[in-house]
Design a protein around this nucleic acid. Structure first.
Lengths: 322, 322
DNA sequence: CACCAAAATGGAAACGTTTCAATATTTATT
DNA sequence: AATAAATATTGAAACGTTTCCATTTTGGTG
């Protein structure tokens, strides 16, 4: 492989000069620059980025650590994250943890050894405590402790909005469905917002929490259908849960939205060809992604952040289910 | 940062010895090994992977270059690719090209500078000609020239299968819909298989090709509906096109599958909650992903491959539309 | 105990950059 | 034309590994 030394030789200058040319750093005479550029052309030289990273003791690689890229919410997020990173010449390394703590730790260790510039984490562990060194981290949707910066949609407001929309659509007794047991997850606030708004409006409501996030949705939904025949509105904590509920409810002869209005959370549907088109609280994925990366840049450059948690406003997206 | 030198000092040995310990290479006395391991513990030392990559002149990074991770087909693919890579300690770098040639070239250049171990390409350019150096590449679904290895689903067989299933479901006059203008794309074979089988069975058929892949599906589908009222079976070249067709056909009062049977291609739906559940030719995404990576490993290690194109069998997946 | 082969260890070179102090060259000023 | 100041260039050190040759240590054998 041709190196900076070969270029220097051919151009008849010292390696330092070539370095200054390719980095546009320091002064170099136009004539010299030309010679060097010609040599670069001639030899088809390109700088060895690995050597640079090594010498500089830092890379332009950011890791995205998430449960599964297969999940459409995460893949949309990844899309925008990559786009934003690319604007500053950063590269994206993708790590699927499967949500398994041991895999998260394994990746964290690997990332540290690889001296990545930063990490975007969507994790189930208190990663900050495990990353003993100081790789800049921004977390999405979960905040564990005071040290870690978190970007999230405004879950509380989303919960309030969902309740209001259900009521506006005619629901008299709305229910909250879903699992919020992941203690550090921001999702708990969706429930809190829902409750807060219901009480503010003096509306009768049901909280039907799923005790264990792992357990099968089917049994949970069936049980709900049996126990709460009087509910006429559902706020499901995710779109997937909403879709699953609708499927089962319809099989029981319940009409959506006539009998029961349903609102999800996320806004994963990006085409209008698959039904039901969910009414949902849309997470501002693009904005979250871009903000996450810009905050990470600040951290990488040591610029202090003014907040610990950044909440991005959500919007209601009208579908066919309210 | 603590380096191998610090460990050597603390353990009272030479750096070479420490290196042999952490790499399990060469002989080292149990007693010495113990000393070194203690020092490593004590100092919380971990090897600098960047320095290693530099010294070894190779990294364990594989790049996945694709149009958009947001596309569910690609995100599933990426999921399995990452999983397979991880088994051998390789890492995945994600590059969204947006399908734009200039962006593909830009990324290719960057990957070369970063000395990635290999590339998985889902591209619209004849990348092999642009990657003048010899980074190992495996392409998915497109093969441009004789040099580049390609993994694809068995598109020809998929086309035959689609035709057969439409006929089996009762179609008397099936049509092929979609754009195959991307010359190097393997997708052309879907059409060819469809035609081949129709002629073998002596079935009347329609080829309604979309001339320009960029142009809006809506107009194309409307035109089709006006011109081909007698068609009672559709093989759409992608699931998305199938879903779009179904949406528009139903608005016109056409019943699916009673009036027209529809089969897509891809198998992107992985949950049964959104309708229509498409009958489709399912690409064996997981198998394609794993085979791609294993072929790439061979290329990385210089093991010659026995074929140029690897076709993985497809399966018909019954949905609600046939 | 002396000797030898085998095993273990030491230590320097090399990988391709950037950086910086030292030196050389150019330009401006008188 | 001499000098000072500004500009340009050189070349070596350093980054943290691995590797390989040279040297030392070990253990077994006669």
């Amino acid at each position: 492989m041709t190196s900076i030394k070969d270029v220097a030789n051919l151009a008849g200058v010292a390696v330092g000069t070539v370095s200054r040319v390719i980095n546009n750093s320091g002064a170099v005479k136009p004539k010299t620059r030309k010679k060097v550029e010609e040599a670069i052309q001639e030899l088809n030289y390109f700088p060895n980025e690995v050597a640079r990273n090594f010498k500089m003791q830092k890379s332009k690689m950011v890791a995205l650590l998430l449960p599964s890229i297969w999940n459409p919410f995460f893949s949309e997020l990844a899309y925008y994250i990559e786009d934003e990173l690319d604007r500053e010449g950063f590269k994206l390394m993708l790590c699927n943890s499967g949500g398994k703590p041991e895999k998260e730790l394994y990746y964290l260790e690997m990332l540290r050894q690889n001296k990545v510039a930063g990490i975007v984490g969507i994790t189930y562990n208190d990663i900050e405590n495990n990353v003993s060194n100081n790789i800049p981290i921004v977390s999405i949707d979960r905040h564990f402790n005071k040290k870690i910066t978190c970007v999230t949609s405004d879950n509380f407001e989303g919960g309030r909005l969902a309740l209001r929309e259900l009521v506006r659509a005619g629901a008299r007794k709305p229910a909250f469905m879903g699992s919020v047991t992941s203690v550090f997850s921001e999702t708990m606030n969706r429930r809190q917002g829902f409750i807060h708004e219901a009480e503010a409006l003096g509306i009768d409501y049901v909280i039907y929490e799923k005790p264990d996030p792992i357990v099968d949705d089917n049994a949970y939904i069936h049980e709900f259908l049996n126990e709460h025949g009087d509910v006429d509105g559902i706020f499901a904590i995710t779109d997937m849960l909403a879709a699953s509920y609708i499927d089962k409810a319809r099989r029981k002869g319940i009409r959506i939205p006539e009998d029961v209005k349903v609102i999800g959370y996320d806004g994963i549907q990006d085409n209008p060809y698959f039904h039901p088109i969910l009414s949902t609280i849309r997470q501002p994925v693009e904005e979250m992604a871009r903000m996450t990366i810009r905050l990470l840049y600040n951290k990488i450059e040591g610029i202090p952040l003014d907040k610990q948690v950044y909440r991005i406003p959500v919007k209601f997206k009208q579908g066919e289910t309210t």
